[in-house]
Deep mutational scan, measured.
Amino acid sequence: KHCVKCNKAITSGGITYQDQPWHADCFVCVTCSKKLAGQRFTAVEDQYYCVDCYKN
C-alpha cells in the first residue's frame, strides 16, 4: 500500500481512513500538524482539522 498523501510505501504502522491508506505521520491537522490518528477530528472538503483548530 502507498500513502494517499505522500505516495510512499507504508511498511508498518499505517492507518486507514475512508478505505484509504495513510502513514500516521501524514494524517495530521492542516493547521497545526497535530497527528489525528486515534483523535477526534473534523474533515472539510478533504482537509482534516483537530478539534481545537476547527473550533477556531
Score class of each variant (00 low, 15 high):
Lys1Ala: 02
His2Val: 14
His2Ile: 14
His2Thr: 05
His2Tyr: 15
His2Leu: 09
His2Phe: 09
His2Glu: 06
Cys3Gly: 02
Cys3Leu: 00
Cys3Pro: 00
Cys3Met: 01
Val4Asp: 08
Lys5Ser: 15
Lys5Gly: 15
Cys6Val: 02
Cys6Gly: 04
Cys6Pro: 04
Cys6Gln: 04
Lys8Met: 12
Lys8Val: 14
Lys8Asp: 14
Lys8Phe: 09
Lys8Asn: 13
Lys8Gly: 12
Ala9Arg: 12
Ile10Met: 04
Ile10Arg: 02
Ile10His: 00
Thr11Asp: 06
Ser12Arg: 08
Ser12Trp: 12
Gly13Met: 09
Gly13Ala: 13
Ile15Val: 10
Ile15Leu: 13
Thr16Leu: 10
Tyr17Gln: 14
Tyr17Lys: 11
Tyr17Pro: 14
Tyr17Asn: 14
Gln18Thr: 08
Gln18His: 07
Gln18Ala: 09
Gln18Pro: 06
Gln18Tyr: 08
Gln18Ile: 06
Asp19Gln: 11
Asp19Leu: 07
Asp19Arg: 06
Asp19Phe: 05
Pro21Cys: 05
Pro21Asn: 10
Trp22Gln: 03
Trp22Gly: 05
Trp22Glu: 04
Trp22Val: 11
His23Ser: 02
His23Met: 01
His23Glu: 02
Ala24Ile: 14
Ala24Phe: 08
Asp25Asn: 03
Asp25Phe: 04
Cys26Tyr: 00
Cys26Lys: 01
Cys26Glu: 01
Phe27Ile: 03
Val28Ala: 08
Val28Cys: 09
Val30Asn: 10
Val30Ile: 15
Val30His: 09
Val30Cys: 02
Thr31Ser: 06
Thr31Lys: 05
Thr31Ala: 06
Thr31Trp: 06
Thr31Gln: 06
Thr31His: 05
Cys32Lys: 00
Ser33Cys: 07
Ser33Tyr: 12
Ser33Val: 08
Lys34Pro: 00
Lys34Gly: 07
Lys35Thr: 07
Leu36Ala: 06
Leu36Gln: 04
Ala37His: 13
Ala37Asp: 15
Gly38Val: 09
Gly38Lys: 09
Gln39Arg: 08
Gln39Trp: 09
Gln39Tyr: 07
Arg40Trp: 04
Arg40Gln: 14
Phe41Ile: 15
Phe41His: 13
Thr42Lys: 07
Ala43His: 10
Val44Asn: 03
Val44Asp: 14
Glu45Met: 13
Asp46Tyr: 03
Gln47Pro: 02
Tyr48Leu: 12
Tyr48Ser: 07
Tyr48Met: 13
Tyr48Cys: 02
Tyr49Gln: 13
Tyr49Cys: 02
Cys50His: 12
Cys50Thr: 01
Cys50Ala: 01
Cys50Glu: 02
Val51Glu: 12
Val51Met: 04
Val51His: 11
Asp52Ala: 12
Asp52Gln: 10
Asp52Pro: 10
Cys53Lys: 03
Cys53Glu: 02
Tyr54Ala: 05
Tyr54Leu: 04
Lys55Pro: 15
Lys55Arg: 14
